[in-house]
Simulated scan of single mutants.
Amino acid sequence: MKSEHVTPQRLQALTEAAATLLRHIEGQHSPAALAMSFGAEDMVLLDLVCREAPGITPFTLDTGRLNPETHDLHQQARARYGVVIEAWYPEADLVQRWVHNHGINGFYDSRSAREACCYVRKVEPLNRALAGRRAWITGQRRAQSVTRHGLPVEEHDAAHGLAKFNPLAEWSEADVWAYIRHHEVPYNRLHDQGYPSIGCAPCTRAVTVGEDPRAGRWWWEDPTQRECGLHRNPAADAQQAAGRQ
């Protein structure tokens, strides 16, 4: 976690901008939902939603391969904020079929196998979680990886036919931790063990000083391809594919 100093003025400005956006989403894009993987960014947004826009529904995708620390934080957040965080699970028959075809840890064998696993455990449940919503909110930030440098605060999610918001797009890692410390927000204990990004246990590792924050996700693959499919941009994918031809 970053220890750089963030001025109170900067933190206040960032917080007010995010709160204003969340209130706008609640008022103009209801029903809206906050997607959570229980990373630091998600906990900042949960705290803001509970303070400023309680009409927004938080949810998480429980893939069946999460760390116990993530489940512990899910329970802690429920108790702290008095809010039910919806849990969406993969379809059992799809998981069974994938494991039969690839093996329990077959996602290490190829990118296509890993993406198929991500689809079964994350993308398909997300489709159900977003059904009937008008907007969803994520904790993505531009500084997280090379695949997110151009991330907008608001975009249209063509795959789901709704608005998508990234209120922390402009925040730095130091900004996120400044908010957490200032408001005493509970956070995932994996962060104290060198995990800047939280995902499935077999696909997430700690990173060393100076590594990209997303270096611990699918580290055996090309850094430009380390997304699970939840935040895929069809236009960007087409452009990237054209560049490889």
Rank of each mutant, 00 (worst) to 15 (best):
218 W>V: 04
66 L>V: 01
136 W>N: 07
63 T>N: 04
115 E>P: 00
35 A>M: 14
179 Y>I: 10
150 G>H: 12
4 E>V: 13
37 S>R: 01
215 A>N: 02
34 L>M: 02
55 G>H: 05
209 V>H: 07
17 A>F: 03
148 R>K: 00
225 Q>H: 11
99 V>N: 00
243 G>P: 06
78 R>V: 12
123 V>I: 13
209 V>F: 03
36 M>V: 03
70 T>N: 05
34 L>I: 07
64 G>M: 07
152 P>G: 10
5 H>S: 11
50 C>K: 12
172 S>T: 15
45 L>E: 04
46 L>G: 13
8 P>H: 08
223 P>Y: 02
156 H>K: 12
154 E>P: 01
99 V>S: 05
71 H>E: 07
60 T>A: 14
222 D>Y: 09
93 D>F: 07
122 K>R: 02
71 H>T: 10
245 Q>W: 11
40 A>V: 13
181 R>Y: 12
40 A>E: 07
20 T>S: 15
100 H>P: 00
208 T>D: 11
59 F>E: 01
115 E>Q: 15
125 P>I: 10
237 D>R: 10
83 V>T: 04
50 C>N: 11
178 A>L: 07
187 Y>L: 08
118 C>L: 08
92 A>M: 12
100 H>L: 14
220 W>V: 03
17 A>L: 01
242 A>Y: 03
245 Q>G: 08
85 I>M: 09
99 V>Y: 02
66 L>F: 05
